[in-house]
Every structure is written in structure tokens, then in C-alpha cells.
């Protein structure tokens, strides 16, 4: 069972991303969107070994370069991710 975790809160304002990383399984992935995209600045995310995706419009709107350990997706890519993973868990 794999889960796509969707995080839209900045990791610099609350602990959602940290909580998410604690429960992330080996087959899981994280999709950063909105202010969650600022987590691209967080090297800890990479060291966890979890796959990281970012919604392209949100990284572009914030002028955040996408590091080589993360992949950029558009909305059709978001839809495809939600199919590729068994569950989608949004950290509301």
C-alpha cells in the first residue's frame, strides 16, 4: 500500500511536514504545493529517501529552483500521481 502525501503548509510555519515524514513509508511520496513548496529549501527532506514532487506552478510562483532530488509536475501529473499511489493523504 503506497500513499501520496500532499502538503500545502510551509515547513517553516508548522510541523505538518515533519509529522508527515515520520509516518512516510518506503513506497510513499510527498507532493509539495502552495507554500509547502518552500520545503524544497529543506535538505532534510532529501536525506529521508522519500520521493518528492512539487506542483510546478507553485515552485515557479515562488521562484524556487527544483533540486535534482525532486520532480516537477503540472495538474495532469498531479492526477496521474493520485492514480499511481493507492491513497492520497492531504495534510489539511
Amino acid at each position: 500500500m503506497s500513499t501520496l502525501h500532499v502538503v500545502s503548509h510551509s515547513p517553516f510555519t508548522d510541523g505538518r511536514l515533519a509529522s508527515c515524514l515520520r509516518v512516510c513509508g518506503a513506497k510513499d511520496a510527498i507532493l509539495l504545493c502552495g507554500d509547502g513548496a518552500y520545503a524544497l529549501h529543506n535538505p532534510a527532506l532529501h536525506s529521508q529517501g522519500v520521493k518528492v514532487f512539487v506542483l510546478a506552478e507553485d515552485s515557479q510562483a515562488r521562484n524556487l529552483p527544483v533540486p535534482d532530488w525532486a520532480s516537477s509536475v503540472d495538474y495532469s501529473g498531479f492526477v496521474q500521481l493520485s492514480i499511481d499511489y493507492d491513497k492520497v493523504n492531504t495534510w489539511l
Binding site: 500545502s8 506542483l55 503540472d74 495538474y75 495532469s76 492526477v79 496521474q80
Partner: peptide
């Protein structure tokens, strides 16, 4: 797909849900 929205129209997440829904139908 079933889509649940928890935020008001002025929240970016409402627009994100709309664009996701449009992309889902387009796909």
C-alpha cells in the same frame, strides 16, 4: 474520483481543487 473541498473560494487550495478536477476530466 471523489473530491472533497474544505476551504473557501479565496483560499489557494480551492483553486487547486478546481484545477485538479478540470485536469481529471481532461484526462
Amino acid at each position: 474520483f471523489a473530491i472533497a473541498l474544505f476551504s473557501a473560494a479565496h483560499a489557494p487550495s480551492s483553486r487547486r481543487a478546481l484545477l485538479f478536477a478540470q485536469a481529471a476530466l481532461a484526462g
